[in-house]
Amino acid sequence: MTETSVYERLKSAIESYQPAATATVVRGDAVGARIVLIDGQVSGSIGDAAFDEQIIDRMREHLAESRSTTESIGEFEVFFESFPPPPSLLIFGAVHVAQPLAAMAKMLGFRVVVIDVRPKLATAERFPDADQLILEWPDVALEGMTIDRNTAIAILSHDPKFDEPALLGALATPARYIGAVGSRKTNVDRRQRLRDAGVDEESIARIHGPIGLDIGASTPEEMAISILAEIIAIWHGRPGGLLAQSSGNIRARV
C-alpha cells in the first residue's frame, strides 16, 4: 500500500462488504508494484498488459477460493491477498442471547442482521454492533434478502409463531447453517410439526437444534460462544470436540 488511496479504497471496500483483492510484488526489481481489484474493477499495474492480465486472472481465482498466497510468476514473486465479503449471520429473535451473539459475531467479522417484530427488543441500544435491525415478521424480512451459502441463520425467539416462519423461510434458502434454539423436547416437537406441515426429511436434517456445541453453556454469553463455535465448525467442516483428542491440522486450510 504505497499510496494512501489504495489503503483508503481497500478499507472502504472491506467496510462496505465488497469483494477485493491485491497482488503485490514482494521480491525482485519492482518491489511494491501492485494491482488492486475491488468489486470487479482493476487498477494499478505490475508489468506489461499481457503480464497484468495473467496476474488479474490469478487474483480472481484466489479471491474465489478466499485464498492469500505468494507465487513466483515470471521474474516476480507476487503476494496475492484476498478480501472476500464476510459471512452473514441472521439472528431471528432480538432476545437476551442475541445480544452477546451479535457482539461476538461482529468480533469474528460477520455481517450481523437482527430480526424481530417487537420494537422494545429490536433496538439499536440493545444491538449497537448490528449492521442492520429489521422490525418485521420473518417471512416479510426474508422476502427482501438475498441469502447465499455464505450465510448462517440462528433462530432464537422461543416463540413458535415467530420461530417457525423463520425456520420455513430459512429452509428455502441455501444458507450454510440453520440453528434453532429450544430444549431437546422442543426440537423433537418442532421437527414433528414441520413434518406434519409437509417439510421433507432432508430439509429437517439441515436444522441444528438444540443449537450450539455441547460445552454446557448456560448464560447468554456462554450460549453465544456455543452457537458461534458450532457455526465456525460447520464453516470449516469440523466436528467440534477437543483438539487433544483429535489429530490432523489444527487450523482449517484456507
Binding site: M1, T2, E3, T4, Y7, T24, V26, G32, T70, F79
Partner: peptide, 10 residues
Amino acid sequence: IEVYVEPLDG
C-alpha cells in the same frame, strides 16, 4: 515465515 513490511502512506 516471510513478512512484507510497507509504509501505508508512501
